[in-house]
Design a protein around this nucleic acid. Structure first.
Length: 874
RNA sequence: GGGCGUAUAGCUCAGCGGUAGAGCUCUGGUCUUACAAACCAGCGGUCGGGGGUUCAAGUCCCUCUGCGCCCACCA
């Protein structure tokens, strides 16, 4: 029998293994032993750093989170097993509008920046019907209070899912460090001229009353209508234009047509008079005017759309603004509408929303006879803020911008080159970056007229009239950061000078949430806060993220790192797909309740959910599939049972990788196959393809249990002597050791459990298996032997299955023919044992091209007594 | 309108130049000294349509169609 010292494996193995409770058990051990704790004494080359996406904590948890975060975790675990010290922090995105809205609803308050801070303020127990106005600082305090609670829920979920995050290294996008780093980065952008202020037409959300950036836009199909409206020529003729926004007639500053459009060429340089308001406007030529659209002539307004802005800028037209920050028609008529009829007409519109104004003006046009024919309904794309529900207006405001190549060809080309330098997984995602950067039409607007966010860290002197002097902002000292210019005072001033002539005023705006998120590598790595740490982790290795925010998060992060460090922020970007849930409607309707990730984890188990997530290939949108979770659960249970069985035949850790003992061809064949699997899984993980790595391991494992284990079972028990048994046991021990580790990145709980039965220490801190090590003990192993023996075994089973007899039914004789015969013969004794062939087993190689196994079934009483089964080792 | 992706068994998907694959479902069987929420076996596809390249095409090229996503100046 086996001479290796007895081990404790069987003692540590439960009688009836189960996957229930493994999450709680191992999550606790990992935490207590600090298995995933980052060792910051390691140097940059020894470290693998991950720029984790900080989830929006006030958003709902959904299975999409589980999906993409699992992908990253499999990579983190793989790299850790490859010997890298993994820097894997977790951030919480608690900055921005979602948090603001949640706080408003949760506490029943709203921010009124004009109110003073009330240090004794406590929110009402129940949100009242009227939102309670509170100061900005009080509001921000409530935001912080609520996000802490949200973050606890997220962390608990992530721990249960088994993310190998170092939970001592969390950050928030609104915490002091993040604010200081955001403000510092901005001030450095400002000093280098990358950030600047400008008063310009801005896309404006009338609900949130804030400017929005190009990256936050989306087009939505909306019902509109063409209105044919007449403008009057001095000679009494008319020019008809088509417009979907007749309410902007008072804002009209010109009519425009294409320079080659013969219909309008005679009019260029003349003026026409607008209907209702009688304002004379020039007729001008511009190539952007499309002769095919409408009548070929268009009204240029302040501002109906971005084309209007282009025309205004390039044709040097005046402005005639009529829409205010609240989306309503301004009380005061713009310049040029001084005539009595114009004032009267304008008065009918003043104060109404754009929607109402449109109805009013259509009536007025009908009365005056300037509306030609009927309005023609049309569906057309309209620009919206992605979080808003009213169309955007364009309003001229003073805003902060950051150069991103949108107005600078050299910078744009440099950023395009950065995109090409980055390694994309999958590679085709790079085209989205290139498309976006190539299509930028302006710099990045980073200021928002909101409350909960990182404030712009500066103040303005007020002149004798109380007007801010924007050209010379007052800047804080670097060591003061973070500051809030609404409550902190600039050097040389006292608080009582705030807002008074000759005093100062803080910049009222906060930064776009992406202006902070774009610094996530700097924030996670504690740039300027802990430079020793930062130089160990930056530039990072991996940015995992979803494809729809390539234009925002990925691009803006590249912009910031390029500006500050002249480098990419990471070498690799792994882009995960989305969860498609065709059944979501059905589920909600029939069940009446939403299935949360927590419930899924509870029902199917963490490893099962991770298995489902890992089955979604990188960058590929994947169906939400309970079936995959069940398969994952079954796999986890199979790993438990197979491990228990293998250890039950006397396999212990000392046997693994004993090259001298593996003598049987089938054992060598298995190890040769396993070496190929390790090689494939390793290559796949190196290429960020966790799906292929898992598939490879899984395919091997099922054939291992279905065929190999069946074939060698009896021999491993000692049925054919000690040497043959030892060959099987060494092979089993080696295979177990490798299989456990191959599955560890995807199934961390069940692999840790089985590993603990026979090995010391966490599997997640052990070394990834080496194909060379396995191949070294496989010797001359030929995996074709395994395949051939498997097929023959399958044929033997088929005979029994077709004859509807038990698999333990004995066969009087069997004859293997065809191409498999010669190979399978090398596993003859194992085939005889697993097929329970008591008589002759013959192999007729080369007598037929048809694979075949012919079998003689004998009546039970004609058979000799079967040999007694060997007893399992005690 | 432009770009990217995708179309293989009832379902979810692998395969990407050399005799059609896996899992699930379905059908039949088996308590086989790890596993009956298990195991064994079987049924099931002219690889979206049409051209082309090649000795050979789910696999490469062209084209059409469907679906998904991203982008695009709202007259």
């Amino acid at each position: 029998m086996d001479q290796s010292p007895p081990d404790q494996t069987s003692a540590r193995m439960p009688e009836k293994p189960t996957i229930e409770g493994l999450e709680a058990k191992w999550a606790q051990v990992w935490e207590e032993q600090g298995v995933y704790r980052f060792d910051r004494t390691k140097t940059r080359e020894q470290i693998y750093s991950i720029d984790t996406p900080p989830p929006t904590v006030s958003g709902a948890l959904h299975v999409g989170h589980v999906f993409s975060y699992t992908h990253t975790d499999t990579i983190a675990r793989y790299q850790r097993m490859q010997g890298k010290e993994v820097f894997y922090p977790m951030g919480w995105d608690d900055n921005g509008l979602p948090t603001e809205r949640r706080v408003q609803n949760f506490f029943g308050v709203r921010c009124d920046p004009s109110l003073p801070y009330d240090s004794s303020f406590t929110p009402p127990d129940e949100p009242g019907k009227q939102q309670l106005p509170i100061s900005r600082r009080n509001f921000v305090e409530l935001c912080e209070q609520l996000t802490v609670e949200d973050e606890k829920v997220f962390e608990a979920l992530w721990r249960q899912l088994g993310l190998s995050v170092d939970w001592t290294m969390t950050y928030q996008t609104i915490d002091d460090n993040s604010r200081a780093i955001s403000q510092r980065a901005f001030l450095r952008n400002l000093a280098r001229g990358e950030a600047y202020q400008a008063e310009a037409p801005t896309l404006w959300d009338v609900t949130f009353r804030t400017a929005v950036a190009q990256a936050e836009l989306e087009d939505r199909e909306r019902d509109g209508a063409y209105h044919a409206v007449t403008f009057h020529r001095p000679d009494g003729g008319v020019v008809t234009i088509d417009t979907t926004r007749p309410e902007l007639i008072p804002a009209c500053v010109a009519l425009v047509a294409h320079p080659d459009d013969e219909r309008y060429q005679p009019l260029f340089g003349t003026t026409v008079r607008s209907p209702l308001f009688g304002v004379d406007v020039p007729v001008v030529a511009h190539p952007l005017a499309d002769p095919e659209k409408g009548t070929g002539a268009a009204m240029v307004c302040t501002f109906g759309d971005l084309t209007d802005v282009t025309w205004w800028r390039e044709l040097d037209l005046p402005t005639r603004p009529i829409i205010g920050w609240d989306g309503r028609i301004l009380a005061e008529a713009p310049g040029g509408l001084e005539s009595e009829p114009a004032r009267t007409a304008y008065a009918r519109l003043a104060g109404s929303t754009a929607f109402t104004a449109k109805q009013t003006i259509v009536e007025m046009l009908r009365e005056s006879g300037d509306l030609v024919g009927d309005v023609r309904p049309v569906k057309h794309p309209v620009k919206f803020f992605e979080k808003g529900d009213k169309p955007l207006e364009i309003v001229t405001t003073r805003q902060w911008y950051l150069r991103n190549g949108g107005r600078d060809q050299l910078l744009r080309e440099r950023l395009l080159a950065r995109g090409a330098e980055l390694r994309w997984h999958p590679s085709n995602m790079e085209i989205r970056y290139q498309n976006w950067v190539s299509g930028l039409n302006g710099d990045w607007l980073i200021s928002r007229q909101r409350f909960f966010g990182v404030p712009f860290p500066l103040w303005y002197e007020l002149d004798a009239n109380g007007e801010p002097r924007y050209d010379q902002p007052l800047l804080p000292e670097d060591d003061q950061l973070p500051i809030d210019p609404q409550s902190d005072t600039p050097a040389g001033f006292t608080e009582d000078q705030r807002g008074v002539a000759g005093g100062f005023a803080g910049d009222p705006d906060v930064m776009d949430t992406w202006a902070t998120s774009s610094l996530s590598p700097e924030i996670a790595g504690k740039w300027t806060i802990d430079d020793d740490l930062f130089q160990r982790v930056f530039p990072m290795d991996l940015r995992p993220q979803a494809h729809e925010i390539i234009r925002t998060w990925l691009f803006s992060t590249v912009v910031r790192a390029d500006a500050e460090f002249g480098t990419l922020p990471w070498t690799d970007a792994a882009i995960s797909g989305w969860i498609l849930d065709p059944d979501r409607k059905k589920m909600a309707k029939s069940k009446g309740n939403v299935v949360t990730p927590a419930a899924m984890l509870e029902e199917h188990g963490s490893d099962a959910l991770r298995y489902w997530a890992a089955s979604g290939r990188p960058g590929t949108d994947t169906a939400f599939d309970i079936g995959q979770m069940k398969i994952g659960r079954r796999l986890a249970i199979k790993i438990l049972n197979a491990s228990k069985f293998v250890f039950g035949v006397g396999v212990g850790p000392a046997l693994a990788f004993d090259a001298s003992a593996v003598t049987e061809p089938i054992d060598r064949a298995l190890l040769a196959r396993l070496a190929d699997v390790v090689e494939d899984a390793t290559r796949s993980f190196d290429d960020y393809n966790y799906t292929r790595a898992l598939e490879s391991a899984e395919t091997f494992f099922w054939s291992f249990t279905d065929d190999y284990l069946e074939l060698v079972k009896e021999r491993a028990y000692g049925g054919r002597g000690d040497d043959a048994a030892r060959s099987a046991r060494v092979t089993l021990a080696t295979a177990m050791s490798v299989i456990h580790r191959l599955f560890a990145p995807v199934l961390p709980f069940v692999t840790e459990e089985v590993w603990s039965w026979w090995q010391e220490g966490s599997i997640h801190r052990t070394v990834w298996p080496s194909a060379d090590d396995v191949r070294a003990i496989a010797g001359d192993g030929d995996s074709a032997v395994l395949d051939a023996a498997g097929r023959v075994l399958s044929q033997l089973r088929k005979v029994k299955s077709e004859n509807k007899v038990s698999m333990r039914t004995e066969l009087a004789a069997a004859r293997v023919s065809g191409p498999d015969a010669a190979l399978a013969e090398r596993a003859a004794d194992d085939l005889r044992a697993s097929g329970r062939i008591v008589g002759d087993l013959t192999f007729a190689a080369g007598d037929s091209d048809e694979p075949g196994v012919s079998v003689t079934l004998a009546p039970p009483d004609a058979l000799p007594a079967p040999p007694a089964l060997p007893a399992p080792p005690a």
